[in-house]
Computed example of a mutant assay.
Amino acid sequence: MNYVLSLGKEIIEKRKLIWDLGKADFRKRFVGSYFGIVWMFIQPIVTIAIYAIIFGPAGFRTPPPVPGASYVAWLVAGIVPWFFYSEVLNTVTNCLQEYSYLVKKVVFKVEILPIIKLMSCLMVHGFFVLIMLGLYLVTGVAVRLTWLQALYYTFAASMLALGIGFFTSAVNVFFKDMAQIVSICIQFGIWMTPIMYHESMFTDRIPWIGTVLKLNPFYYIAAGYRDSMLTGNWFWERPTLTLYYWGVTIVVFLAGLKMFKRLRPHFSDVL
Rank of each mutant, 00 (worst) to 15 (best):
Arg238Thr: 06
Pro114Asp: 02
Tyr34Ala: 07
Asn90Gly: 03
Thr203Phe: 12
Met229Ser: 09
Leu137Asp: 04
Val80Thr: 15
Ile48Ser: 00
Met192Pro: 07
Phe166Gly: 03
Ala179Asp: 04
Val252Ala: 02
Leu215Met: 15
Trp246Cys: 11
Ile186Val: 06
Trp234Glu: 09
Lys9Met: 00
Asn233His: 13
Phe174Ser: 06
Ala161Asn: 12
Glu87Gly: 07
Lys214Ala: 11
Val124Glu: 13
Met159Gln: 11
Lys16Trp: 06
Ile181Trp: 03
Gly210Lys: 12
Ala73Tyr: 07
Thr93Leu: 11
Arg264Leu: 05
Pro65Ala: 04
Leu162Trp: 10
Val103Phe: 13
Ala58Ser: 08
Val270Glu: 08
Gln187Cys: 02
Val141Leu: 08
Tyr136Asn: 14
Phe30Ile: 00
Val72Ile: 15
Ile53Trp: 04
Arg15Phe: 01
Phe60Pro: 01
Gly224Ile: 03
Gln97Lys: 15
Ile18Gly: 01
Leu213Thr: 02
Lys261Val: 04
Tyr244Gly: 08
Ile209Asn: 10
Ala142Arg: 15
Glu111Trp: 08
Ile79Pro: 06
Ser70Gln: 05
Val171Thr: 09
Gly165Cys: 01
Ile206Glu: 01
Thr93Val: 12
Val46Glu: 02
Leu241Cys: 03
Ile48Ala: 04
Phe174Asn: 05
Tyr219Ala: 00
Arg61Lys: 15
Met1Asp: 01
Ile184Phe: 10
Glu10Pro: 00
Gly22Ala: 08
Ala142Ser: 15
